[in-house]
Write a protein that binds this DNA or RNA. Structure first.
Lengths: 223, 223
DNA sequence: AATATAACGAGAAAAATATCACGATAGGTG
DNA sequence: CACCTATCGTGATATTTTTCTCGTTATATT
């Protein structure tokens, strides 16, 4: 039987990606109103696309004025759930882990790191900002006690899968993975990858394209 | 006059994104051959799409066998220019900068960090791994001397634009931006953003979707 | 108050991307 | 050696996404 009734409005993935960019732009701007044209120009898109994207939201623009920045930003905040507090734990107290704990932006996005774990006895007991590094034995206890929703993995890639398994066994359903490897997880667990090697390939590819363009054009000037 | 002659085969952007995933998979696997089906399953795609993507490459699969992992990986290496050495400098010797300098994976991808800069007198002169932190005065000299192609920005977001401008004024044409802000750059400079706030929104959005799903389903079990 | 115009929303058209369907072939099996 | 089947490559089809077009409306101007 086909499921009848209100199907939730699903936002196309490319649109969702752009909505994230709009969000950042709205946070950064000090204008009170902003037009689709201005948004488009800032991000290298075209205005029709911006308007189309924004039709997935309730906020409407006004002719001759544009969109009210504050309203739009708030609706995006809501879409992304920015205002809800999410408790997270972080596994891996290396350089990257330290960098993340010290990252000042989480507060604005409702992310609270409640504990840091590592399995290196040298690191256990040391402080990162105001958090003591705990041993992995404490993982499940802390997850349950603080109702932790997300685990951040920043361990070397060879132990990432193992850490993921431990997190999942403690009931964690969301993983933010900074290890440069693919994780195998059950269907009901989501993984957001922050894999530096992937964007490294992007960087290298850009260089490669430029190189090829120069080769093709010989010594000719471009533009 | 329209330019005649061989136009370079342009790989669609979504395909290119997936090719990066295939690359990682090929690096990780220890199989000698791999089928489109296996690739697809690992990455949650379908086999036809994988095959279609791979038609943009020269490497062909064999019926009953699949694709030769080594060959395919090498062709991807070439596509992304992984084997060419790229000299980069890094600006911002904070936690993140340190984490990056200590990241062991760059070598495999032909990235060599040749210098680290900061404008904090406390940090200038200190060592990160085997690199002395230099003052920004030395920027252009080092860029020219070492033929640096890429600048990595990992300074706080308020100084990111300024650093970008400095890099560009020294002739840098590529920026890998870890600051959570949009950079304004001339057309001939490319920026690859590694903005944690953007993937943070992804994380929050997943949670939000899950929350809404649970609300809709009430106490019903799913699956 | 009438007019002009900047900017919007939305449906239609076009372009890009993903999926399907199927014929071809390499390698295994009897 | 002939057949079977897993897997490929590719042209056809379907779907998604982007762009175009145009009618509408809020504000400014005379």
């Amino acid at each position: 039987m086909l499921q009848e009734g209100k199907e939730p409005i699903v936002i196309p993935k490319p649109t969702l990606e752009r909505l994230k960019l709009y969000h950042r732009l709205l946070v950064e701007t000090d204008q009170k109103h902003i037009s689709s044209e201005e948004i488009a120009k800032s991000l290298g898109l075209n205005a029709e696309q911006v308007r189309k994207d924004l039709t997935f939201l309730k906020t409407m623009g006004k002719p001759k004025v544009g969109y009210h920045v504050e309203t739009l930003r708030q609706e995006l905040d809501e879409l992304f759930g920015v205002k809800n507090t999410t408790k997270v734990i972080l596994v891996g107290a290396g350089h990257l882990g330290k960098a993340l704990v010290n990252y000042p932006g989480f507060g604005n996005y409702g992310i609270e790191i409640v504990a840091v774990f590592d399995n290196d006895p040298e690191k256990i007991g040391t402080y990162i900002k105001d958090l003591v590094v705990l041993s992995m034995d404490n993982l499940c206890r802390v997850v349950k006690r603080f109702k932790v929703e997300i685990g951040i993995i920043c361990v070397p890639k060879d132990s990432a899968q193992q850490v993921a398994d431990q997190l999942i066994s403690c009931g964690i359903k969301g993983i933010w993975n900074f290890a440069p490897t693919r994780l195998n997880v059950p269907n009901d667990v989501f993984v957001v990858d922050e894999d530096i090697t992937q964007s490294l390939l992007t960087v290298k590819h850009f260089l490669e394209l430029r190189k090829q363009k120069i080769e093709r054009n010989g010594e000719r000037r471009e533009e």
